[in-house]
Design a protein around this nucleic acid. Structure first.
Lengths: 150, 150
DNA sequence: TTGTATGCAAAGCGTTTGCAGTGAT
DNA sequence: ATCACTGCAAACGCTTTGCATACAA
C-alpha cells in the first residue's frame, strides 16, 4: 500500500516546478525548504518510486550524475544540450531521426540518446560578460531564467 | 621525466589489443596477466596519463562507467552502440551529421555524443536468450558481468 | 493498531589520493 | 643515487541499505 507523505509530495513538487532536470542533491535542497530534516536517502528512495510510477524521468548524460525531470515535460521524445561553459542542461525538442540504418549488419536499433555540447545563448553572447555570468550560474548547476528553449 | 614501466606497457597493450572499449576493471584484469600484483590505482593513474598523452580515448556512455579505447581506433569521429542484452559496446563508424541546426536560437553546437541502443548481431540472432548468452560469454572479453535479467 | 516511509549511519561502488617503499634512469 | 612510479589502504562523492522510530492508513 502506498502512502502519501510530506516528503514525497515535496520531492515531487520540487521536480515539477523546475524547468530543467535536477540532481538528487538539488532536489534535496529544494524540497528541504518545505520539509526540514529531509534526508538524502529519502530523496533517492522516492525518486526510485517516482520513476517506477513513471511520474519522473531520469536524464543520464555521459559522465554526469543522473538528473530528474517531470515526466510530463519529458513525455515526448527529446534530447539535451549541455553548455560547455556553464554546464547547464537544456532540452532540445528536435531529433535527427532516421538512425536505424546507422547500426552494423545484424544490429537492431531500439532507441538512441543524443547530447549536444556547445555554448548556450548566454555564454555565447559576450566573451567576458558571459564568462562572469557563467561563473555565477555554475554554482550547483543553477539555472536562472533560461530554460526550455526551442 | 617520464619513465617506462612494465605496468604502463601492460596497460597500454591491454587497451590496444582489445577490439572494444574496456573498463578500468577489465584493463586491470587483462594487464594483470602480465604484471601480477598490479594495483587498480596504478591502472587509473596510467589511464590518466595515457589520455593526456592522447594515446587513449575515454568513452563515456550515459549511466555507464568510463571505458577506454586505443586512440588510433578512435581517431576518426564515430559513435557507439550498446547492446541492451549483453551490455557490450561497439563502435559505429557512421554519423547523422548536420546537427548544428538542432540547437535553439543563439546556441552554438561544438560537438555531439550519440549512443544507439538495441540488440547486437549475436543477441539478435537467436531469439533464444540462452543462445545469445552463450555466444556472448564465449566472446573475447565477454558480456559484462552485469545483472540485467532480460 | 499496523506496517510503510523516514532519518540516520554505515556500507557499496568506482575513482582518487597519501605515503612509504620500489625500481628505472 | 635520484626521484618518478608502484602498491596498499584510506579517503571521496554518489547512491543504496539496515535498523529502529515515526506517522499515514
Amino acid at each position: 500500500m502506498e502512502r502519501t507523505t510530506r516528503q514525497k509530495t515535496a520531492i515531487q513538487a520540487a521536480i515539477e516546478s523546475a524547468q530543467r532536470p535536477l540532481s538528487a542533491q538539488e532536489i534535496l535542497e529544494q524540497a528541504s525548504l518545505q520539509v526540514t530534516q529531509l534526508g538524502i536517502a529519502t530523496v533517492y528512495r522516492n525518486l526510485k518510486s517516482l520513476v517506477l510510477e513513471e511520474k519522473v524521468h531520469v536524464v543520464t548524460l555521459p559522465g554526469e550524475n543522473p538528473r530528474y525531470e517531470s515526466n510530463t515535460a519529458a513525455n515526448h521524445h527529446h534530447h539535451h544540450f549541455q553548455c560547455t561553459t556553464c554546464q547547464r542542461v537544456f532540452d532540445v525538442h528536435d531529433c535527427p531521426g532516421d538512425l536505424k540504418r546507422m547500426a552494423p549488419q545484424g544490429f537492431v536499433v531500439e532507441r538512441h540518446e543524443l547530447t549536444l555540447y556547445g555554448r548556450c545563448a548566454d555564454c555565447n553572447a559576450g566573451a567576458s560578460a558571459a564568462a562572469a555570468a557563467a561563473k555565477a550560474a555554475t554554482a550547483p548547476h543553477a539555472c536562472a531564467s533560461h530554460h526550455d528553449p526551442a
